[in-house]
Design a protein around this nucleic acid. Structure first.
Length: 315
RNA sequence: CGCGGGGUAGAGCAGUCUGGUAGCUCGUUAGGCUCAUAACCUGAAGGUCGGAGGUUCAAAUCCUCCCCCCGCAA
């Protein structure tokens, strides 16, 4: 069976590696084109691109699949099945129709909740208690295909995007291998998504990552977790831009904080630890932060060199 | 040549502009105080100031080149 793999991120890489190690016949890999990335505008290939190349698998990086030349190239691969995992491009119907077994997608949410680009971050941001992986047959809609299988993962208040992505990647890999084990039967048993209760996870934008200290500590903590370790929730104080990598909602020090004139975003020190006031009489203890131009450090360390900032306001 | 911040004791920083004894807050360590302590007091150890060259009577500081870390942007 000829398999084509389409994916770009670390999440998808795990599945590709597993497929390759299990000796599936991967005839081609599609991934997003190399882009200028990082300092000095160096061109970087995607992790999937690097891996496929190192294993001698042909790599395709079209900017779109809509052109007739791309459709022709694809049909020449004589794919029987395509596995898609956080690829990043829309797949037109005339390509979906080509493989006998169609397209299968590994999606990192419990569909129909969180269709779209950022299912993992969105689940954490909105405070979901659980998420998971859905394996589905792809159709022309955005993550609207029939469901082949679904498994859950718990989310705690301290689950980060990085941690959840790791777990999701492992689970997705496990599930796609199960699916392939008994492909025809699994495909025939697929069921329709309920169209109620669907939600969409839009792409992550810059402003989404900036912290609004007028929210409660709980909401802010979700944002920190959803964007950790990257791109990171951030804030600013006295012109210094600071990423917040980890924090804890603090209860025991609230009585102390309440005696002060609390302003949301105010940096406080208590028992050598750094706190920031949030809305509704809540506060966050800064446990790991990353000031621009510096290396990541604890809140305590930051205070040691910046006593003058105590009492100032994050914005 | 995309824009910018930084490298000084184990950690976080000041000192650089204007050259003149290597500092601060912590940590570590020895002792003291205390019913006791992560609190307080007294002492100690711990630095080739990222590297190389240059200027100078004298360089963390000024000049030249190099290395490393990071933020933005994409």
């Amino acid at each position: 069976m000829n398999i084509v793999f389409m994916g770009t991120s670390d999440f998808s890489l795990k599945s590709l590696v597993a497929l390759h190690k299990n000796h599936y016949n991967i005839v081609a890999v599609y991934t997003q084109a190399p882009k200028p990335f990082g300092r000095n505008q160096k061109i970087h290939k995607s992790v999937v691109h690097e891996y496929a190349e190192s294993k001698g698998i042909p790599v395709y990086t079209p900017k779109s699949l809509k052109s007739t030349s791309e459709v022709e190239k694809f049909s020449e691969l004589k794919a029987d099945l395509v596995i898609v995992s956080s690829y990043g491009l829309l797949i037109p119907q005339n390509i979906l129709n080509i493989p006998n077994y169609g397209f299968i997608n590994i999606h990192a949410s419990l569909l129909p909740r969180w269709r779209g680009a950022s299912p993992i971050q969105s689940a954490i941001l909105s405070g979901d208690k659980e998420s998971g992986i859905t394996i589905m047959k792809m159709d022309a809609g955005l993550d609207t295909g029939d469901i082949i299988s679904m498994k859950k993962i718990n989310i705690t208040p301290k689950t980060t995007y990085g941690m959840l992505t790791e777990e999701m990647g492992n689970l997705g890999t496990e599930m796609i291998l199960e699916t392939l084990n008994n492909l025809e039967e699994n495909l025939s048993k697929a069921w329709k998504q309920p169209n109620i209760e669907s939600t969409y996870a839009s792409k992550i934008s810059k402003d989404m990552c900036k912290i609004d200290w007028n929210n409660s500590a709980e909401i802010i903590l979700r944002k920190i977790m959803a964007f950790s370790p990257t791109p990171s929730a951030w804030t600013e104080i006295e012109g210094i831009r600071i990423k917040i990598l980890d924090a804890d909602i603090t209860m025991e020090k609230l009585h102390y904080l309440n005696e002060k004139t609390k302003i949301p975003g105010q940096l406080c020190e208590y028992g050598k630890e750094a706190f920031v006031i949030c809305a509704n009489n809540s506060a966050l203890k800064l446990t790991k932060i990353h000031p621009a131009g510096k290396n990541p450090m604890s809140g305590n360390d930051f205070l040691r060199g910046h006593k003058n900032l105590v009492g100032k306001i994050f914005s």
